[in-house]
Write a protein that binds this DNA or RNA. Structure first.
Lengths: 225, 225
DNA sequence: CTTAAAGTATGACAAATATCATATTTTATT
DNA sequence: AATAAAATATGATATTTGTCATACTTTAAG
């Protein structure tokens, strides 16, 4: 069992508020998991009796819509806690979490989290702020879905991916998504997404090398979004 | 200054967790306002140093999108607290609150709320659950915006309006929205909204009497949504 | 290495939606 | 009550987006 005290990602999450003795307690009751690319951490409707702390890798949080398509609601990266909302609401999770890369996650049981909640005010405040941030982002996202067209949303998403997940040495977006997944973020048909990528390519806004995407003209992309 | 102890809407909000002495304290520092239909309680970007408790009337929470249209993110009714999120995030509000009917609201200053927060665990838990509910609703809403077409969203919204705000004695929807506002909820152009209402009317799903709307065939509307 | 399967790309077309124009109705104001 | 202004309604048309078909490319499995 590894030491939470040493874990780097803790600094980026609500858990940074925990005191030394709390960290030791947590290290004793947590469970570490390795999740392979494509595998779920949990799925919509599951009862998750705790939260997962993302230590390494990125996952998509998706919701199956009535028409059978998976909408990607959010991408989660190291430092984020998954399942906070359903833990507080005392409900099954309403989103699935699927690994986009090989991942390392730690499961912290509900009883432990609730203990911190009651005894460490800073920690509960951090969790609350996190959820508030998510709410604001969700509202903004909703407005974009309602008011922007697919081309604008694609441009915005490409910029978001570079901004939040960075680029490789060859300038391609670090986070590799399939066209279907990209379509699932912007909320459109896979073919429409592919078509617009081709259009952006023709306009020299981006470069496509197989699955890899490079942003060539961010100014122009920002104008579109 | 009226007595919070006696206020009915308290039962429907996070404030129901407050103890007698806390209610007396709150009654002493709150400010009551009457807001006329069409007037704002606060606007996007305002710094609101506290929360508003809706005592009477309904308001729309809107966000101005880049294309200049107001998207209605949420409708708030008696018992709801407005501005919770921005209070916790310590940010300006990201939504405007505009009265759809004449309203009565009470303003409770931040210092007071923070006091309850620190001393009354049930109260903070209630607020947190509230925000979690909002987050879930926002995520669902987002998926609908991304995956459902305008006709489906209109049908869904009409059912939502009856479900949540009820009907008058003549069976018309109690909450009267302009076509523009209805379009602002479902995220479409006003003309498209009007056109689809006309279509629903021809199909005998609804009845239109001026601004008033009656749902005639809820089964069929549910099928569409 | 070969083959099947999955993912990507593109054309053709249909459906959904936005935009602009204009008419009609309702509401507010004098 | 008369008039202006706003809201509602509808047609015509352009644009956007989805769907289906099919070809090509990459990846995975044997």
């Amino acid at each position: 069992m590894s030491n939470c005290d040493q874990c780097i990602v803790r600094q980026f999450s609500s858990l940074k508020a925990l005191r030394k003795e709390e960290l030791i307690k947590m290290a004793n009751c947590k469970t570490s998991y390795t999740i392979k690319k494509g595998d779920p951490i949990f799925e919509e409707g599951d009862t998750v009796n705790g939260v997962y702390c993302v230590k390494e890798g990125v996952c998509k949080m998706t919701k199956l819509s009535d028409n059978g398509k998976d909408q990607i609601v959010k991408l989660a990266k190291p430092g984020e806690l998954l399942g906070q909302r359903s833990l507080i609401s005392e409900e099954a999770v309403n989103l699935s979490a699927i690994a986009l890369e090989d991942m390392e996650v730690c499961f912290i049981p509900k009883s432990e989290i609730m203990g911190f909640f009651n005894e460490n005010n800073q920690f509960s405040m951090n969790v609350m702020k996190n959820i508030c941030d998510d709410l604001k982002i969700a509202d903004d996202h909703m407005v974009n879905m309602a008011q922007k067209n697919v081309k604008q949303r694609l441009a915005e998403t490409l910029l978001y991916l570079e901004e939040n997940f960075g680029i490789n040495e060859d300038n391609t977006l670090r986070l590799q998504l399939s066209r279907e997944e990209l379509a699932g973020i912007i909320g459109t048909a896979t073919e429409s997404c592919i078509r617009l990528l081709s259009e952006f390519k023709k306009l020299k806004l981006i470069e496509l090398t197989g699955k890899k995407i490079t942003l060539l003209d961010k100014i122009a992309l920002k104008k579109i979004a």
